[in-house]
């Protein structure tokens, strides 16, 4: 049972990291135009909000799909 839990946690971590890789690529393209000498406050805010708004947007899509399904 402990082994099972260990495997589940590691799988969760792997999914988390896979998402972070994907988000970093997408948000890097949106927020970092020219990599400078340091990460500007504006760029950091953009990256954080990019992740948050992407999750909002996916959440909105999933909810809307549910509503459409109920109406059918």
């Amino acid at each position: 049972k402990e082994l099972q839990q260990f495997v589940e946690i590691e799988q969760q971590k792997a999914r988390f990291h896979a998402q972070v890789h994907k988000f970093t690529e997408m948000c890097w393209d949106k927020c970092i135009d020219k990599p400078g000498n340091r990460l500007e406050a504006k760029e950091e805010a953009c990256l954080t909000q990019c992740v948050e708004r992407f999750l909002d947007s996916t959440h909105f899509i999933v909810n809307r799909l549910d509503e459409i399904r109920k109406q059918q």
Partner: peptide
């Protein structure tokens, strides 16, 4: 479908991510 749609529609519709959607 959800994954591809989410990514494309986010990139198209949220040009400058702000403090809320």
């Amino acid at each position: 479908l959800l994954q591809k749609m989410s990514e494309r529609c986010f990139v198209k519709c949220v040009v400058k991510p702000g403090t809320s959607l």
